[in-house]
Design a protein around this nucleic acid. Structure first.
Lengths: 204, 204, 204, 204
DNA sequence: ACGTAATCGAGACGGTACGTCAAGTCTTACT
DNA sequence: AGTAAGACTTGACGTACCGTCTCGATTACGT
């Protein structure tokens, strides 16, 4: 799993005063708070600084952009919490999909990821940082699908990456663009599509 | 089909000097140009105004936000061009999916839609305008799927809206977040998933 | 006395529809009202137009500047009202000075004249219009002083214009710059200065 | 004498980057220049900023209005320069009056003071700042008159403040409203009025 | 233990853009 | 023809943040 930070750590100086961990945490905390209060668009470095009781320059020293700051803040404030694999493909896939719903379709973070995605669309470094943040979730889903392919629940040559894109994309798009909630029914529809090849049906 | 404009037309005045169509077109043209040159994020009303040779106030008179302006500009600059229905579900669905790729995954517009979606996520009016813009594309896809269900190619109780979310979502997500091109292979994978219930396979 | 208008009457058209007196009066009335409500500085042509239920262009057709409009409005709304001359120099001079106090030191108008003076300081036409407005008051004072000189109350070679400047200036300056009220005491001091050559004394 | 500044100094911060004196001077210089070029009315903060090579916000940080800025600029660019008292009342009074002429009736400043007076007529703070600026001139005149009263040239109970209003007012009014030059003749008339109780006479 | 060097808060600074307001001109349609 | 309504360009307003830059004042090393 990824333990790397996305922060743009400046070259470690051989001597001098060390970076103050308290300050660092205060900045990340303030970022998470403001993200919840005003959302990504209206979050400004200036506000983070004053909320954290910190100079603006301190933030710029450690993060080179708003997106980098927010990504690290979400990483710390939103750790990946995946249940243990049970070995049952259906149960495990359902858990992976529900985890994706948490990431993409719930609360502040749900609306932050798309904003981030749009913002970094012209910035290669930022895009990579965002992918780093999303990777653990994707890794978890991949493991589940690999396992399912291994036990024969899925065809052996299934294109796992595209399958992942399918269900994350559906959740992402429905929540972000269509502004519809992603509920248990849809989760079940996705599970059935992937494991049974059964297209979603309307509920009679 | 939707012929409505998304522009925030101020109450139609019964009298007074008529709106100058040249001015209006110049604004929309400048918006489209700048969208291509600098992208949605860096597009500012100020730049649009100076590029169009127009006062800022004129823009604000007719559009109450950057998003409203951009949506109308895209609508005019990117008309829905769908091929005639052939009656063959596979051919028509492929065309609909390719049209979605054009909208969500190609060029400036591809990166504009997500930025718009993120921006209007806190603004009910803007969100509605965005949906108005996207509706014709969605309508076209719906018709194709209805037709397929009618002729028995799809099960009669298929949840068409969710199916649409599936393929648009996959295209959207792959292009925006994963920064991968959406090619003919993927289009074919989506067609087969929907019409044959066949999960995507890796190419040997 | 001056019966001329200061309005910038456009060249009288030989034919066509005549200037509408109702419209004209409504504009002047609205100007006087707004002058009282918001003062000269914050009076805008736009507000006058909407208050008068009139198009902006109509105002610009008949007056070429805010100052011209305001001057005419004051002329109509603030006619010179001088008491009959009694023949007694002291009484008549006191009346003339009190009239100057009314013009320069009381209410909205008091603060309008200096603003006008400042505004027209770079505009020869406007300056002339302002002088036209002030002339009747000055004429009245001059008559009184002439009379006083004729009957020997003032030396025959007194420089009447400068004497007028003295008392108007004192009133003007004290009210505008020093923001002090101009009361009966000061009026009396001015009368005594002019008629008796007695410098103002403090009140014991 | 008053050494106080009229600048609206924000609460002196105990910490933070110090105010840059170069920047400050550049703003005041630009203000004085523009005052001479376009006058008070057409002087805009925006122009001052661009002329001084400075951000608008920097100006607004230190001065809360155009009038405050202009007053301080005049203060620095137009220091009170009074000749030594000779002890001779006539000589000293003549010098004080000539100083008033300089302030109120000459050049850019002459037309700036009335504009300022008109502008601050609705603003108590601004009015006070203007009085602060004018105070040193008034103080000088007061001293002279006090001296004259002390040596018996003036009656002991003369109302010095009103006498000052008289001659400043005459100069102010004649220059601003009547647009007439204030020459040596008038200065002499004022001196004689005050010291000899002799009303101004026409020159034969 | 001490001096050195980097960190930190605070916030000044030159900018860009915001969204608003009014000025003064021009156009259209009504009366 | 005169007028109301109001579209339009222009330019300034005062505010918010941007990202960079000084300031002093504080630490925590390495010697």
């Amino acid at each position: 799993m990824s333990n790397e930070t996305v922060a743009a750590d400046p070259p470690a100086p051989s001597t001098g005063r060390a970076r103050n961990p308290r300050t660092h945490q205060a900045i990340l905390d303030a970022t998470v708070q403001l993200l919840g209060e005003v959302g990504y668009q209206d979050l400004s470095i200036e506000r983070v600084a004053s909320r954290a009781g910190v100079g603006k320059a301190t933030i710029y020293r450690w993060w080179n952009s708003k997106s980098a700051l927010v990504i690290e803040a979400m990483e710390r404030g939103l750790p990946v919490e995946l249940p243990e694999h049970t070995g049952d493909p259906r149960t495990d896939l359902r858990a992976a999909i529900q985890s994706a719903v948490q990431t993409y379709a719930v609360g502040q973070v749900g609306s932050t990821v798309p904003a981030l995605a749009a913002e970094v669309s012209r910035d290669a470094t930022g895009a990579e940082q965002l992918r780093q943040f999303l990777r653990p979730r994707r890794d978890a889903a991949r493991e589940v699908l690999h396992q399912a392919a291994a036990v024969g629940t899925l065809p052996p040559d299934v294109d796992i990456e595209t399958v992942i894109d399918l269900f994350i994309g559906a959740i992402f798009y429905r929540s972000l663009v269509r502004k519809l909630p992603v509920d248990a029914v849809m989760v079940e529809q996705l599970v059935e599509l992937i494991l049974d090849g059964r297209l979603p049906r309307t509920i009679p």
